[in-house]
Write a protein that binds this DNA or RNA. Structure first.
Length: 530
RNA sequence: GGCGCUUUCAUCUAACGGUUAGGAUACAAGAUUCUCAAUCUUGGCAUACGGGUUCGAUUCCCGUAGGCGCUACCA
């Protein structure tokens, strides 16, 4: 009975999962998603998470992951930003299938290189009467906003403005030929309920009357704005799902209307608006300043601003492991449905499901990221960590065989959160202490310590086999026979070898140091400290 | 101001009408021990509020309050 019902339950769960996968991949379309940043500076950590979710979704459904550059704002363009973004994903291990620098059949993938395409579609909208030309200058609009509270360029106001709806056709033509700059605005029909079907939030309905006639195209630089470029590109690149931040939710109805205006509603992508990343404390979304203030990076890589010369710290340079960053980020707004927390990228791909994404913003609690980093240090082999640690050793002038580094790492890695902390925890393995910690001395280097340590040295020297496992019981026996206290003897020795009351088991240290070095250090300390 | 989204421990979250409301981080205590850590065990800590619907609401609906976002010829 129990078995059957359990089996039955599993079948139901399985069927439900299948159904979810089907609804998320409607119409048997090939899954194609994109990450489309603007090259206006370093990649924000929230952007990294958005890209990660897109990546997971694409892999989960065997689809394509596209990298598109949305550089339609020439004013905000920052040289080097594109390469920075690419480099960030290389470090994080997130791979794209097509797009800028990856190739593909839907290019070009840089919007500034698609001017002709957008022009064509703008003209289509104009001809169909779904959009119109407006000549109002920024100054005129500014004046209007000052004059009328809550001014909005829409059905209630557009007939008071200078545009192709209020001007005669020959006037419009003359203005353009005279070199007047203009924009193309979408003509929003008021009073319609526009529905956005969001995979995370369900149906979101908004009345078109609250929408304004958004600018789609600027004659000044012959470039579209985000909204137009986005819809045209997603359509042409056959994007099936738009997974992006919640800040886009208010403009999603506009996008639906654009798909409708073009007659592309049947192939419109499905939307999924992700919750935002919030400040660890206080109000608002996570910003660049929070990192500086609270001592953690908000960018994957260090960034040198070419204009201001300002340097913003990055996770890579701050010694975080990319796996830890990815793992932490993945769990900020998503969970696999059970208690698992440590997951590889491949495991996440397997487990990923948009329906398990949360709706509310998540505070960026970097304390947990530190914990993740520790977990990944423990998870990685001693050799992997040793490879990362070796350059630090060399920077301290220490060159030893890799096996030595590996052994040292194995001895102390459980006590660090960062690879960079390794040095402070094991420098004594590679160089004799040149000073002794005062607190440790006070506690363990008592009046008879020089004498007992000297005796211990003699005893150790007399042992034929220098091996911690052999030595330990013999030393314990010796201590007992002398009537000494284990703690006192061992810690006195520790201080002479390490320079402080810290470190792993003492016989691990003597093993690592070897007979000669151990005795040399101990005897040196006895003479130095008596 | 308008529009939209959102609300379970301090934080990330689980529980998709029936649980002593679970896990993790952080915090605290204990264990261990040759030190410091790590580790293990234990502990405290939550369903924003008010109405419904229901035999029964963390879960569904409405309202209030809080939070967040958008409201550019930026994305």
């Amino acid at each position: 009975m129990v078995k059957i019902s359990l089996f039955h339950e599993k079948m139901i769960t399985f069927a439900a999962q299948k159904k979810n996968e089907m609804t998320q991949n409607s119409g048997n379309r090939r899954v194609r998603v994109r990450f489309a940043p603007s090259p206006t500076g370093p990649l924000h950590i929230g952007g990294v998470r958005t890209a990660l979710y897109n990546y997971l979704f694409a892999r989960k459904h065997g689809g394509d992951f596209i990298f598109r550059i949305e550089d339609t704002d020439t004013n905000r363009f920052v040289p080097g930003a594109e390469e920075y973004i690419l480099e960030s994903f290389r470090w994080l291990g997130i791979k794209f299938d097509e797009g800028v620098s990856f190739g593909g059949n839907y290019g070009p993938y840089r919007q500034s290189e698609r001017k002709d395409i957008y022009k064509k579609y703008v003209d289509m909208l104009l001809e169909a009467g779904k959009a119109y030309i407006a000549f109002d200058t920024p100054a005129e609009l500014e004046a209007k906003r000052n004059e009328i509270p809550n001014f909005q360029y829409d059905a209630t106001t557009r007939l008071q403005m200078r545009n192709s709806l209020t001007l005669r056709a020959d006037e419009v033509k003359a203005l353009i030929e005279a070199g007047n700059q203009y924009v193309v605005r979408i003509l929003i029909e008021p009073g319609q309920e526009v529905e956005v079907d969001d995979l995370i939030r369900g149906k979101v309905t908004i009345n078109s009357s609250v929408l304004d006639d958004k600018v789609l195209y600027k004659s000044a630089d012959q470039l579209p704005t985000y909204h137009l470029a986005n819809i045209v590109d997603d359509h042409l690149m056959e994007v099936s799902h738009v997974i992006r931040g919640e800040e886009w939710l208010p403009s999603a109805p506009l996008h639906v209307l654009l798909y409708r205006a073009f007659g592309w509603e049947d192939t419109m992508p499905q939307f999924a608006h992700l919750p935002l990343l919030l400040k660890p404390e206080g109000n608002g979304k996570l910003s660049k300043r929070d990192g500086d203030r609270l001592g953690f990076p908000v960018f994957p890589l260090e960034w040198h601003d070419p204009k201001t010369g300002e340097i913003s710290s990055g996770y890579r340079e701050k010694d975080y492991l990319p796996e830890a960053v990815i793992n932490f980020l993945a769990l900020l707004g998503w969970n696999p449905g059970d208690d698992r927390e440590i997951m590889s990228l491949d495991e996440m791909v397997d487990l990923f499901n948009l329906e398990k994404c949360s709706k509310a913003g998540a505070r960026f609690n970097y304390q947990k990221l530190v914990w993740f980093n520790h977990e990944y240090i423990m998870l990685k082999s001693d050799r992997e960590i040793a490879l990362l640690f070796n350059p630090i050793l060399e920077s301290h002038g220490i060159k030893v065989p890799m096996e030595r580094v590996e052994t040292a790492v194995g001895l102390v890695k459980n006590r660090v959160n960062f690879v960079g902390e390794l040095w402070d925890n094991c420098s004594y393995l590679f160089q004799a202490p040149d000073e002794y910690d005062e607190k440790s001395l006070k506690k363990w280097w008592k009046e008879n310590a020089p004498q007992t340590t000297a005796e211990l040295c003699d005893f150790l020297e007399s042992q034929p086999d220098w091996n911690g496992e052999v030595l330990e019981p013999l030393v314990m026996e010796w201590i007992a026979s002398k009537g000494y206290q284990t703690g006192k003897v061992m810690n006195a020795l520790r201080v002479t070898l390490v320079g402080a009351a810290m470190g792993p088991q003492i016989f691990c240290i003597t093993d690592f140091l070897g007979r000669e070095e151990t005795l040399r250090r101990a005897r040196k300390a006895i003479s130095a400290l008596s």
